[in-house]
Nucleic acid binder design. Structure first.
Lengths: 314, 314
DNA sequence: TCCTTCAGTTAAGTTATACTTAAGCGAAAT
DNA sequence: ATTTCGCTTAAGTATAACTTAACTGAAGGA
């Protein structure tokens, strides 16, 4: 049996027709006339030896053969299109698409974006806030910032910053909170976005390393870290905040971190991009910039007592 | 940016050239002259705006853009080719490719194949013995016989037979084995291929439901069920055999199953094929035949005492 | 009922793509 | 020094892809 592919244009015509379930719409998509498309389908059916569409009065429907073929052509052309777009994007040195988690985007990237735009006026930065793991070969993403453990196989990976956590609140609220025990009398805000960390880095862990016995089970819970910090900004309560996300607010005095004790995490932020892409000019510029910003952000480490959360007893 | 695909023939030429890393070999594969292929690559590079190959003295190597594009085109054309072959195979009513586990192939299918060939002389049956889960959309498989639990989503699934197990041995050996306790004095053959079953259906489970205390830890272990039965056929020892696999040997008297107690399993054999494919003539013929064979195979159920293995204590 | 519209087909003719042949080129192999 | 190898280029050809225009058969509306 001759298993070589039929004319590719015929396959593409079939793919479009199967997606639209309409010859004329498919023809419009491909910028050809319905007549041409009709010929392509006919040619495909001759190569196959049987029809792929059943022609009805005012519509078409797939035959068994068509139903078998359609998912494969859809996959195939999707892969080709994705690869082509990604390759074309290589030479586009004017835009840079970065994906990061929603919290990091809101509390770290967004406040610093103006600086980057000033320093690189020729690069148009696009942010894609999502926790979804991106596939550089399929999605139109140049750079990903991810928080967690790694390793990142097959990717260029650069560690940006370790993360640590400490109680954070408005200066007003801080007047009433001088010792860890005082936290029992204020609202505790819970950031649930780090539940995947081991050991757990939550209020219970912090109180434990402080050696005080405070019930930490009450208070509102936030699935996104930035929302917890936003709540703290209103003076609602105290949040055990990730330093990277609270950094700007601390620097500008809207929040304070009065306690010496900080909980270290084993996770860290990493800069990820496809292998060798780190040399592309706009990616290099972004990496250099973000590394510089990240190293500056260590100013609040002074005077802290860093403790790692205890491993949970088995 | 114009993200529409370049001429597909150019993409295909690139794909072949990237796979072979040679223009002339790629041209040979596509049955065109090297000159034509050279033009296709050139055309692709014009559409892309940059070269995909770096021309060296007597060789070519991929540029960064080429390295980005190549995996995608390989995937894409592989998907198209697989879909096309599978669709072509639909109209081939002369062959039928069946995959089943090695044991079922050897001890169930193979001994019955002659019957099927007699009844369906126009169908050429191909067997592919493998435990790998087959993907009907990628592999050239029409029908799969699988042992386990299901469910089988998105597939046509027909339950063929429940499986049960009982001690099986040569008639000679059976003279020395009259009661379960006698099994302590013969070699126990262990079939490890069912370790995924819950509850476990091994010698320990069988002795437990028999209420006797025999050490079942000794004796040779086999990773494939048919090898354990082959060992029993030589008179080496006694195997706790799956009835479907031992059926032919029991029927023809080469093995006997003297004990009343049989261990039921919750798993069963299923016939699997793509949705709607069960109506294709040769698949229908095979399904009808195998269903008839499977229902005949219940002859050894008479006089058995069926017990399910106890759930393990938590 | 008749006319219109809609979706796809068919025929004839045109354009543009894909391909071949033949000659050329530079570097490596002999 | 000469040949060989792998790719390129130029010129010309075949054919695949496409368009325009006329056609079909059924559904929908007045």
């Amino acid at each position: 049996m001759n298993d070589r592919l039929p004319p590719l244009t015929a396959l593409r015509a079939f793919d479009a027709a199967a997606r639209h379930m309409s010859f004329s719409k498919a023809a419009a998509e491909l910028n050809i006339t319905p007549a041409a498309l009709s010929f392509q389908i006919k040619s495909l059916e001759e190569h196959l030896g049987q029809p792929v569409f059943r022609r009805l009065n005012r519509a078409v429907e797939l035959t068994e053969a068509g139903r078998t073929l359609a998912p494969g052509t859809a996959d195939g052309f999707a892969a080709l299109t994705a690869a082509w777009r990604n390759t074309r994007r290589l030479q586009d040195n004017s835009t840079l698409t970065v994906t990061a988690g929603p919290a990091f985007t809101a509390k770290w990237l967004a406040p610093r974006l103006y600086d980057f735009a000033q320093a690189n006026p020729d690069i148009e930065l696009r942010l894609s806030a999502s926790l979804r793991i991106m596939d550089f070969t399929r999605d139109e993403i140049d750079v990903a910032i991810r928080f967690g453990y790694g390793p990142d196989e097959g990717l260029f990976s650069q560690r940006l910053a370790d993360e640590w956590m400490t109680p954070v609140m408005t200066p007003d609220l801080a007047k009433r909170v001088k010792t860890p025990v005082d936290l029992a009398n204020v609202t505790l805000l819970h950031d649930d976005s780090l539940h995947f960390l081991k050991p757990a880095c939550d209020w219970a862990a912090w109180f434990k390393v402080e050696g005080v016995d405070v019930d930490s089970s009450h208070g509102p819970r936030f699935s996104q870290a930035d929302h917890a910090i936003d709540a703290a900004l209103t003076g609602t309560g105290v949040v055990l905040a990730r330093i990277s996300l609270a950094h700007k607010e601390l620097q500008e005095g809207r929040l304070v971190a009065p306690f010496e004790t900080a909980l270290t995490t084993k996770a860290h932020f990493r800069f990820l991009c496809p292998m060798r892409a780190e040399k592309r000019p706009q990616i290099k510029a972004f990496l250099d910039w973000i590394m510089a910003e990240a190293s500056q952000a260590s100013s609040f480490e002074q005077g802290r007592r860093f403790v790692s959360a205890a491993e949970p007893a088995e």
